[in-house]
Design a binder for these strands. Structure first.
Lengths: 339, 339
DNA sequence: TTGTACGCGTTATCAG
DNA sequence: CTGATAACGCGTACAA
């Protein structure tokens, strides 16, 4: 059978209470006793039963990460960097990947009401009011990334401003017909990011008196393939754009391929700017908006750890990390004659 | 406070036993009773305490995924695809990312002996004998991906043969000086994959009577940056290679940048082939060896699910999924005059 | 410094 | 079909 704390206690000739104290490094244990218990536990290959421990203590030293089920670079990078600091902080991580909106509330309930975890990290999810209040009524620390609730600390960037910067870059290069490769038209997950960035795009256009042409806004689903298809669509319309802003680097790279496949050159014929500064961006020379993706995960995890170690919540707060325009080789001056 | 099964029982006017049965869909509950209990539970916002449940039942409906802490595309893709099927199968996933070898045994102990999970999925880890026997002595189902133990089912590909195919492709194009961009020279994690692929490379060379030049084998650390640096090193040696085999697409793409940065053309001056068929590979025209990465995760998860639902273990088995040479634009005939 | 004994919230067994 | 109750393994007052 499995060895319990009782077994260790007997083998070591002490009580279970002493074993518990010794193994967890609590005070009030004679050094010699502690050493002895440790050796016996080691010899018996004893490991604390985390579930029993949680039941008795109320703490599970586990935190839940809830995020969309997608294998985009962004999610992986955020999650991985968060995991690294949580793990270093002594916490295990339970990962909930949400594939459809219906799962979301269910997963949160299991996590929150089920007392599975000591804290929750939410990455880029559109939380229903019910979800938010469910989490708000408890005492469980919650930190969010690119997810605005008005209740929990939120890490992210200023997507509107960043998108504005991207669009302005194109405008400053002389482009006036600017395509936008975005998310999904009727996105079931209701992601906020595409909306915010679209707004930044429109603001930049507006401040330069450029008319918004709806047919220049096409969905790309945040994937390489989606970006490629979107670009094909952009190329097929009457007055195709001379500059394109893709809301993610993946989509931008997809678009680049389509452009080159039809024999057009970048940036001579068409300029392309992405968003993220994906690991690969530098290697394909993609101009983009860099956002500190790993920073999101690390900061959020640290914030959670701080809360967990008793630090007072500073109320709802929004931490915006800086973004930066990285000019590489896919954007250049507009060569099209004005009309 | 938090609502317990007791609260629900009282509110519903039944015993806790009945609540438990009703909520879990067990037989021997009157339909009317079940409905009533469900409504009361819903109204009270009750959720089963998973830790208490596990303690009483012995099952946690959680599976652990243990993998290296790295944000390479491969790991994310494998893990995500596994998570998707595990989640659909009703299991939660606890993700352990191992940053250093020392953590590995510790993490496994916590997982196995700590009875945290009902099953374990191991991705690309070099398991010490102690680790293996620790897991083998229990009854916990274990499935591995790209990890050979001789004890547990292993999903993966034939890395030797696949690497041989890649190298032969270069040889068939007339290349004789073939560089290899590999892992780390004294990799602390002792990954087996680079070794296997290096062997395939050497075999292909041998079967064509091509001499192995040690200086043609440079480390690339499986990253874009590492690949770029490795390529710079390859370019700096006396007789630089005319063809390069990078053990991952990330490294291959890094190498491509270095080549183009120094004014050389691909594939006219140098051919490059990668490994993985990374999402981005098609978009940069990279010739590569495709391996069914998502398939690894899905198959492993399904295998685990089958074991969990009582299916007999078929003993140690090794499932090799097919790889495929995908020729794109980065490999071409060797133009160098023979010497 | 160490030991005793109870409680944590469920599940499972066994009566009824 | 339903209810009482004994585990499950550990943490923690409290007592010694």
């Amino acid at each position: 059978m499995t060895t319990t704390i009782e077994d260790v206690a007997q083998a070591a000739g002490v009580s279970t209470a002493t074993v518990s104290r010794a193994l967890r490094g609590l005070p009030n244990v004679a050094p010699s006793t502690r050493d002895h218990v440790r050796q016996v536990a080691e010899a018996l290959n004893y490991a604390i039963d985390s579930h029993a421990s949680r039941l008795a203590s109320g703490r599970s030293t586990t935190i839940g990460i809830v995020m969309p089920l997608a294998d985009q670079w962004f999610y992986n990078r955020v999650s991985t960097s968060a995991e690294a600091v949580l793990s270093a902080g002594g916490y295990d991580v339970l990962r909930y990947s949400i594939a459809a909106p219906e799962e979301q509330t269910e997963a949160l309930r299991r996590l929150i009401s089920g007392k599975r975890v000591d804290g929750v990290l939410i990455i880029n999810l559109a939380l229903a009011n019910a979800d938010v209040s469910l989490m708000a009524e408890g005492t469980l620390p919650v930190v969010t990334i690119e997810t605005d609730t008005g209740k929990f600390p939120a890490i992210g960037c200023n997507n509107v401003a960043a998108a504005q910067t991207a669009t302005r870059h194109l405008i400053n290069l002389g482009h006036r017909q600017i395509g936008l490769i975005s998310g999904l038209p009727d996105d079931p997950m209701h992601f906020a990011i595409p909306l915010e960035r679209e707004q930044g795009y429109r603001q930049a256009l507006a401040e330069h008196g450029i008319e918004v042409r709806p047919e220049l806004n096409v969905p790309g689903n945040f994937s390489f393939a989606g970006g490629a298809e979107a670009m094909a669509q952009l190329l097929s319309i009457h007055h195709p754009p001379t500059g394109v802003f893709a809301l993610s680097d993946e989509m931008a790279i997809g678009a680049l391929k389509t452009i080159r496949d039809v024999g057009l050159r970048v940036p001579e014929d068409i300029s392309v700017i992405g968003f993220d500064d994906h690991d690969v961006a530098a290697y394909v020379g993609l101009t983009t908006i860099r956002q500190p993706v790993a920073g999101y995960g690390e900061q959020a995890a640290r914030l959670l750890l701080a809360r967990l170690s008793g630090e007072k919540a500073a109320g709802e707060s929004r931490i915006e990390l800086p973004t930066q325009l990285i000019v590489r080789d896919t954007t250049g001056p507009c060569r099209e004659k004005g009309e």
